[in-house]
Simulated assay, not measured.
Amino acid sequence: MIEKEGFASLVLRLRAQGITDLDLLTACEQTPRSQFVPSQFVPDAYSSRTIPIECGSFMEGADLAVRILARLQLKPGHRVLEIGTGSGYMSAVMGRIAERVLSVERYKTLVQNAQARMDSLSLRNVIIRQADGSNGMLGEGTFDRILATAAFTAVPRFYADQLVHGGSMIVPLVVTEESCMMVRLTKTGSRFEREDLFPVSYLPLASHIAVYL
């Protein structure tokens, strides 16, 4: 019951923000958010509050998660790279729309928990891997979309080679010590067109840490 009521109120809030993408909302409805939050936070699963998870990480409030995915403009057939799996909620929603999702996470515990959730939802096209995504994922081919949920201090140009022409990435960029902006970078030839979306609060990406965890 919590699931149905929570999702219904989320949809109303999203519609008020102009988010009406039926494929995305259907994918969210098919991905029970209560399975991704620690048990004590199940009543808050569909709220807009940030929820702490294992390893000192957190998952975005429901509104922000779907708002980001809406800006990603995912289509069937897309290959997606996600930097920062976290709980795996966004990976799972994307997996219901895209052809393949490769999600990388530095914490082994988060990788194992997210993989267990993908297995329970029978999402075979979502691959969770423990890796350091700070310099891209060379050897994995190209992607139509890249999503990062850890902040970069500058436009991560090394990802340009991994995006198809016309592909885009959404990434939080540190603007000042106190502020961070979610931006969409669309690849045109060898350069990025940048579009500032909305302010967010994200942790800076810690590189080379996956090896130790």
Rank of each mutant, 00 (worst) to 15 (best):
G136Y: 12
V66N: 11
G133A: 02
Q73K: 15
G84P: 07
V66P: 11
E60Q: 12
G136P: 11
M137T: 09
V80K: 05
F143K: 03
I127W: 02
A114C: 10
V111C: 12
R106H: 02
E105A: 09
G86Y: 13
F143E: 05
S57M: 15
M137Y: 06
S91I: 07
A65V: 13
L138P: 04
R117F: 02
T85H: 10
E140V: 00
F58E: 10
R67T: 14
S57V: 13
G88H: 14
D119A: 05
S47K: 14
S120E: 03
R67H: 10
Y46G: 00
A92C: 03
I53E: 04
K75C: 15
I51Q: 07
R106I: 11
M90F: 06
A45R: 08
L72A: 15
G136V: 11
T85P: 11
T50P: 12
P52N: 03
S134R: 02
E60F: 04
L64T: 10
R129H: 01
S47L: 13
I97K: 13
G56C: 14
L110Y: 05
S91Q: 11
I68V: 14
S57A: 15
S91L: 09
G61T: 01
D63R: 07
Q130P: 00
T85S: 14
M59L: 13
E140M: 00
E140R: 01
G139T: 14
N125M: 10
F58L: 08
D63G: 04
